[in-house]
Each structure stands twice: as C-alpha cells, then as structure tokens.
C-alpha cells in the first residue's frame, strides 16, 4: 500500500518524459517542452545532490576503516586527508578573499592536473599488461573452440597491424576482420543491448519493476 504513491509518481513522470521525448519538438507547445526540460533539470540536480551524499558515504566508509584499523587503514588516512584538503581548497576558491581564493584555486588545479590525472593515467596504462595476462589466462581457463578462435583472431589482428615484410596479406585479412565480422557482431550485440534497455525501461515505466520504496 505504502508503495502506491511512489509507483504512481514514477509511472506518470516516466510516461510523460517518454511521450515528450518521442514527440517531435516542433509539434510540442512551448510549455510542454519547458516541462520536459524541467524534469531533466530536476534529474540533474538530484544527481548532483546524490554525488555529495556519495562523497560523504565514501568518507564514512574510510573513517570506519581507520577507527577499526581494518586492512588498508593507512591508505584510508591518505584518502581522508586528500578529501579534506581538496574540499577545503575548493570551498576557499569559491570565496573572494584575496589572495587566499586565488591560491586555493591554483591548489585545486594543481591537485587535479598533477596528482589525479597522472595517477589515473598510470592505472589506465596498466590495462595493456592486464589484457595480455588475461589473454594468456583465457587459454588455460577455457579450453573450448570459442576461446581458440578468440586467440587466433587476436593474434591475426596483432600480426596484421605489424609491418612484417612478405606478410602484407595479413593487413588485408585484418581489415576484413575488423570491417566485416567484428562490425557485424558488434552491431548484433548492440541491437540486443538496445532491446534489453527498452524492455527494462518499460518494466519500470509500467510499474512492474521498482528499484525504490518498501
């Protein structure tokens, strides 16, 4: 019973947004188009508030780790310190107190540009090594024809990309693999994903699925 109001609101907003999105803009009266934009703006605002809640949650998780001296608690101290410093710099940067505001803005820029970006880039660089290791692991873990085909195609693509003298035909094979079976397969998968997305969305709009409430 308690769930009826949230479900009703979700269905009405869902149906309205879907109908307004599917109707060509030119056919929509101005106020209805404004309503669509308003709903989208509300969603964006809620997303921003949710992010703040998420950051508070992250801080609480790491505070608990530190207080309980759980595995990796030392790293949690660094995370909390970084969170406090960058958040403080961000707040100070929004004020107009010279010269602190400029210094704080510069500090925030420095943290993103020279700490976060390089650290994230190095983690991304690890991907190549991890992929090679995962490929080698695949041969051991799955001894079936699909895995063998996967490895053969991967090796053919790598060989086709290398400037090997006398094996120029591999380049043609690589192009064919990339443009015909790979594109065909990817489109098939994307069609499946689109169908799944539509069905899941409609279940929520119909009120048959509700990831909220009691």
């Amino acid at each position: 019973m308690k769930l009826r109001l949230p479900v009703a609101v979700a269905i009405i907003v869902g149906v309205l947004t879907l109908a307004l999105t599917l109707t060509p803009r030119d056919n929509l009266p101005g106020n209805l188009n404004d309503l669509r934009l308003l709903l989208v703006e509300w969603a964006a605002t809620l997303g921003a508030v949710a992010l703040m809640v998420g950051v508070a949650n992250l801080a609480l998780v790491h505070l608990r780790k530190v207080s309980a001296l759980s595995a990796g608690w030392v790293y949690s101290i660094f995370l909390l310190l970084a969170l406090i410093i960058v958040f403080g710099l961000g707040l100070l940067g929004m004020t107009n107190i010279p010269p602190y505001a400029d210094t704080a803005r510069e500090g925030t820029r420095f943290a993103f540009l020279y700490i976060q970006t390089p650290v994230e880039a190095s983690l991304a660089a690890l991907l190549l090594v991890v992929m090679v290791v995962a490929g080698a692991r695949l041969i051991r873990a799955r001894r079936n024809w699909v895995a063998v085909l996967f490895i053969i195609v991967t090796l053919a693509l790598i060989a086709g990309s290398a400037p090997l003298v006398g094996l120029e035909a591999l380049g043609g094979a690589r192009d064919w693999l990339m443009q015909v079976p790979a594109v065909g397969g990817a489109r098939g998968i994307l069609l499946g994903i689109a169908l799944g997305t539509i069905a899941t969305g409609l279940r929520v709009i119909m009120g048959a699925d509700h990831p909220y409430g009691e």
């Binding site: 809620l46 997303g47 508030v49 949710a50 992010l51 703040m52 809640v53 998420g54 950051v55 949650n57 990831p211 909220y212 409430g213």
Partner: peptide, 11 residues
C-alpha cells in the same frame, strides 16, 4: 555514482 549508490542502499 551517487544515485545508484543510494538505490543500492535502499535495495
């Protein structure tokens, strides 16, 4: 993401 985190907690 914060929104999915809140829904996960609620679930």
């Amino acid at each position: 993401d914060g929104t999915s985190m809140i829904l996960a907690q609620d679930t």
